[in-house]
């Protein structure tokens, strides 16, 4: 199985690959190392950049397949899929990895159908065993883990952001850049407009290293400001539980949980969140979990690494102060 591990590049739509691409390349590098394969990036964009290409090399791609065409933006799976499928047909990669993002989630699913192969969506771990790849995926609201394998290559998978480690960047590594000619089919879909969310000055929920999240215990929408202040100090994104979203305190896009976003930050801090299964499904793969709740029996304490049983209205501002003091040092 000395084939290529392809990683689809997730970029910021302005020619710069995003951090999650480094995570994909990192995991692919480790798997390729175990199996004697090599790592390649596949970049579809209306406009790539030299810096971006270099970046992909430093992150571990020995080759970049660059499909640059104005028709590739905005993303439409019906345009991207045949392009990648045509290339895959010619190059026969061993695996194709994408990120769990709005674009690649759709691309990889469609690609799997087009190529007639299996897709392990939202994977959180991989293992190579007897020349086979085994993916681990959370199922049933994250209550169980399913280990699955493919009947035949290419092995398609999407990887949950923030779960896989990037490799140390190889300074000066220059990837071979190929500009293959593939057919770009016209799209039937027309972009009318893109509505950007009001900038909060805080990182995007699914991409953030630190997430501060509030639940019913906040008692009202006006109190989220307490968490925002803490978030500003530590550069965190602010999320909410379903209870807080259903009560109309925060827009749905901030909901963490089974019917919201799934996050895996390095640090998750929940305030006034009891820890319903619903919510845990969306954050239990966080590396460090902190819970602040006045109810000592709140289920979230069962999975928390650190807990404070107390009033969040007292504890949160104290934490803001302490972090400020620490980070100003």
């Amino acid at each position: 199985m000395a084939g290529a591990f392809w990683c689809i590049v997730e970029d910021d739509r302005a020619g710069r690959p995003k951090k999650v691409t480094a995570e994909l390349l990192g995991e692919a590098t480790r798997l390729a190392r175990q199996s004697g394969g090599h790592v390649e990036a596949v970049w579809l964009a209306d406009k790539a950049s030299e810096d971006g290409l270099k970046q992909l090399g430093e992150w571990g791609a020995v080759r970049v397949w660059l499909l640059e065409d104005a028709a590739l933006a905005p993303f439409r799976s019906e345009v991207w899929t045949p392009a990648v499928a045509e290339l895959a047909g010619k190059e026969a990669p061993q695996a194709i990895f994408g990120a769990v993002t709005s674009r690649q989630r759709e691309l990889l699913a469609r690609l799997a159908a087009r190529l007639g192969v299996g897709l392990a969506a939202d994977s959180v771990a991989f293992r190579v065993e007897d020349g086979k790849l085994i993916a681990t995926r959370p199922v049933y609201a994250g209550k169980l883990l399913s280990k699955i394998t493919w009947a035949k290559p290419p092995w398609l998978a999407t990887l949950r952001p923030n779960v896989f480690k990037a490799e140390e960047p190889k300074a000066g590594a220059v990837p071979a850049v190929e500009r293959p000619s593939v057919a770009i089919v016209p799209s039937r879909m027309t972009l009318v407009e893109r509505k950007e969310e009001v900038a909060t000055g805080l990182p995007e929920l699914t991409e953030a290293d630190v997430v501060v999240s509030g639940g019913r215990g906040l008692k009202g929408p006006e109190n989220f400001v307490i968490l925002e202040e803490l978030a500003k100090v530590i550069g965190a994104a602010v999320g909410a539980s379903r209870a807080a979203v259903d009560a109309g305190w925060r827009p749905h896009r901030f909901q963490i949980g089974q019917t919201g976003r799934t996050i895996s930050p390095k640090l998750y801090m929940g305030f006034g969140i009891s820890g319903a299964i619903q919510h845990l499904a969306g954050m239990r793969t966080s590396k460090i979990i902190v819970a602040v709740n006045k109810d000592p029996e709140a289920p979230i304490f069962k999975i928390a690494d650190y807990g404070i049983v107390g009033d969040l209205f007292e504890v949160a501002p104290l934490l803001t102060q302490e972090f400020k003091r620490l980070l100003e040092k």
């Binding site: 007639g116 392990a120 280990k147 699955i148 493919w150 304490f301 690494d305 807990g307 104290l318």
Partner: peptide
């Protein structure tokens, strides 16, 4: 099938957490 389940497993146990007790200021 293009995919087959190798195994379904429970979650690995999380190491026990630490409850920081005492005055809120000290705990923080």
């Amino acid at each position: 099938p293009r995919l087959s389940v190798v195994a379904l497993e429970g979650l690995p146990p999380r190491p026990p957490g630490r409850i920081l007790s005492g005055e809120p200021a000290a705990a923080a």
